[in-house]
């Protein structure tokens, strides 16, 4: 199963919210994937074993897995575009 990670500053609010929204979208589209909110301090470790990274903070470095804009899932601004990218990546 493909793995999606979401990270924000502390992992107490935003990443959890985005992760649950993403889970809902995947369910609606009948796509199975493992979605989890992770602590940004351990991001490097998680990236190695994940397929997609949904980012809520400014990225200071490039990762070698596809990175999506997490803010879109939070505010709904640009959500169609990010959803399409996500679904394509998980197909």
């Amino acid at each position: 199963m493909k793995k999606v990670i979401v990270a924000c500053g502390s992992g107490v609010a935003t990443s959890q919210t985005v992760a649950s929204k993403v889970k809902k979208i995947l369910e609606e589209n009948k796509i199975k994937a493992d979605v989890s909110a992770v602590d940004i301090k351990s991001l490097d470790k998680y990236v190695k074993t994940s397929d997609v990274y949904i980012s809520i903070t400014k990225n200071t470095k490039e990762f070698n897995i596809p990175t999506l804009n997490g803010i879109a899932f939070l505010t709904g601004m640009g959500i169609e575009e990010e959803t399409k990218k996500l679904l394509d990546l998980l197909k």
């Binding site: 992992g11 609010a13 959890q16 919210t17 929204k21």
Partner: peptide, 13 residues
């Protein structure tokens, strides 16, 4: 307690 308040932000949004 993040686990009990996880839906809060989505509800607000």
């Amino acid at each position: 307690d993040p686990s009990k308040q996880v839906n809060l932000l989505s509800k607000i949004m």
